[in-house]
Amino acid sequence: MSGYFAPQGGLPSQTALHTGRALFTPAYAVIPKGVFSDIVTSYLPGWTGLRCWIIARPMSGFSETFSQYVMELQPGGGSSAPEPDAQAQGVLFVTEGTLSLTVDGTTHIMEPGGFAYLPPESGWTLTNPGSAAAHFHWVRKAYEDAPGIARPRAFVTNEKLIAPVAMPGTNGAWATTRFVDPSDLSHDMHVNVVTFQPGGLIPFEETHVMEHGLYVLEGKAVYKLNQDWVEVEAGDFMWLRAFCPQACYAGGPGRFRYLLYKDVNRHAKLSGVLGR
């Protein structure tokens, strides 16, 4: 087992209760693991052996910068042209199984914890060479060019090779695995892994311009979303629009970890606002 949660699909029984933990508010949404059923999957052009759960997409008046898919790829499945948008950059994060990724003429074997950054027009391809289904996240964002700044290059790594950086004053109770240097302005999005040890917390209500997607990889916690405390666990997804207050308390018994998306390093857009 990888230690990362991956949905398995299926359907609840006819005797199951309808009421669950799913929430959609003007400030945030919670998609709990129990709603990752077979009947809400999508199929994508250009892929074989694939189904996916689309858990975030740009929506006017809500989160507007990214999409996020939870992908299930069967043995032998894949795509020779997975990305249809020439402006789209992507991140892949593997939670279960094995993937073979080819980018810039080099093939990489990715296993659980594997991370790949794929810039626009990188012409990558992906297959599952294993004997079991592979599960991975695919985060997509239209790249925003900036004057005088070259686009970033593709790279592939694994979170196990990167030392988490502890937040100041937390004694390691709250740490972030960063795949990109925060001061590198060529990147306009970050996808990190955040880890809280039991008892770790965000000790204030973060309120900021970045949008967030948070997929819980491991453990459980209570998360402050706007005015509500919501209990979340491995397999749940949280979607936060800009300026939604947030905080967290990880009560244990094990560590609490999530995959975090945020948009960074660019001016706020003014075109289309107030008649401009």
Rank of each mutant, 00 (worst) to 15 (best):
S122P: 00
E111Y: 14
T127S: 06
L101D: 08
H135S: 10
A134L: 02
H135W: 04
P84M: 07
A132V: 11
I109Q: 15
W138H: 11
E111R: 15
H137I: 02
S122E: 03
E121S: 00
F93Y: 06
A86L: 10
H135Q: 06
Y117M: 03
S131Q: 15
A116S: 00
Y117F: 15
E121R: 10
G97P: 10
G114M: 03
T95Q: 13
F93L: 03
G90W: 00
A88N: 03
V103I: 15
K141Q: 12
Y143T: 05
G130M: 07
H135G: 12
D104M: 10
F93V: 01
E96R: 15
T127Q: 04
P112G: 11
N128G: 02
T95W: 06
F136K: 01
Y117C: 06
Y143L: 07
G114S: 10
P112H: 09
G114C: 08
A142F: 05
I109D: 12
E83I: 06
P129A: 05
L118I: 13
P84S: 05
S131V: 13
T102A: 14
I109S: 14
N128C: 03
E83T: 10
T102P: 13
E111M: 12
F93W: 02
P129Y: 06
D104V: 13
V91G: 03
Y143K: 06
Q89E: 15
T127E: 02
L126T: 00
F136P: 01
E121M: 04
G113R: 04
P129E: 02
E144R: 10
S122M: 03
E111S: 14
P129T: 01
